[in-house]
Design a protein around this nucleic acid. Structure first.
Length: 319
DNA sequence: CGTATTTGACCCTA
DNA sequence: TAGGGTCAAATACG
């Protein structure tokens, strides 16, 4: 398959890049440049992560003998594509991404002009990091675990949580937490629905202070579930007054934006995948449901350079 | 004793 | 029919 060959070449290129980075890291360590070495470590992590994803995608390609791994990424991708009323956000670790977050916020709002029909059912997925070998389950909201499931092809089981106030207040928010295969300190957290319970409407002081911390995931390793009011900042760019997306509780300060996460919530059916790739100087957005948006984003006047490939939209900072 | 977690069974969808 | 998601009884915990 041509596509798989392309993926393999991309994987080889990524691994070559990793190798070059390792050598550069050695050099920087020899020169006693800890800050430079640390910076490179971030790039390395990003590159390895990218390699892993490419490898998974290659693994899902049809093989020469016609066999195909049933749990490959193709199967998952196909499964997602046939669940239209779903809004999905994948937000990778946005460490040191503060300058990009506001741009992405505008971007997301702009994109709603092309929103699809959908149901109020919202889903977003984030990837969070735990500082130690412990689950980053404390996102300031109370959840009750109601199930755990081994997922085909996944190394770790997926845990299912629902809001503690489901019965008392009818809050239907749920989340799924799964440890990432590639990095045991990373967790993929998928939120379904929005909290309508009191704890969401009145976040605790601890929650607020956490959101106000500019450190991001590096020190928090968590993501806030945020069903609160839409934020108005993004409307300044001449956008329609309707703001179907809702963000984290508004703080007014860009530096406090999401505590490293990107809690954007939409009642639309638009499905997105968004990853940060700060080390490579950009962000990566996969839009499985809206490939027609490629042209829109390509022409968008953002401080990014857009590149559309297959069903993924890559954007790089032009700064 | 009330609440949370575990886990096998069941349901739904592709 | 397989796999993901949820239910609910059993169990653990404070």
């Amino acid at each position: 398959m041509d596509g798989c060959d392309g993926e393999k070449r991309a994987l080889a290129a990524q691994l070559a890049l990793v190798l070059a980075m390792v050598r550069e890291l050695e050099s920087r360590m020899d020169q006693d440049l800890p800050a430079a070495a640390r910076e490179l470590c971030g790039e390395l992590a990003s590159s390895v992560d990218r390699s892993i994803r490419i490898a998974r995608s290659v693994d899902g390609c049809p093989r020469g003998d016609g066999s195909q791994h049933p749990g490959g990424s193709n199967a998952q991708s196909k499964r997602r594509q046939v669940q239209p009323p779903i809004f999905c956000f994948i937000v990778d670790t946005l460490i040191e991404q503060q300058s990009h977050v506001s741009d992405m916020r505008l971007l997301a709002l702009r994109s709603f002009r092309c929103s699809r029909k959908g149901t109020p059912c919202a889903r977003r997925q984030v990837r969070v990091a735990s500082v130690q070998d412990m689950a980053p389950l404390d996102d300031g909201l109370s959840w009750r675990k109601y199930g755990q499931k081994d997922i085909l092809g996944a190394k770790y089981p997926r845990a299912y949580f629902k809001c503690t106030h489901r019965h008392s207040q009818g809050c239907l928010a749920t989340k799924h937490v799964q440890r990432a295969d590639g990095d045991p300190l990373l967790y993929d957290v998928v939120y379904h629905g929005a909290h309508i319970c009191a704890q969401a409407a009145h976040p605790t002081a601890e929650q607020l202070s956490r959101q106000l911390q500019p450190g991001g995931l590096a020190d928090a390793g968590q993501e806030q579930s945020s069903p609160l009011e839409p934020e108005n900042e993004g409307l300044q760019a001449g956008l329609e007054p309707m703001t179907p997306y809702s963000f984290a509780p508004a703080t007014g300060a860009a530096a406090a934006d999401f505590g490293g996460g990107f809690p954007l919530l939409s009642p639309t059916g638009l499905e997105w995948q968004l990853r940060s790739n700060h080390a490579a100087g950009g962000l990566e957005v996969g839009m499985e449901y809206e490939p027609q948006l490629a042209e829109f984003f390509t022409n968008a006047a953002d401080p990014f350079q857009w590149e559309y490939q297959d069903d993924h939209l890559n954007l790089y900072s032009t700064n």
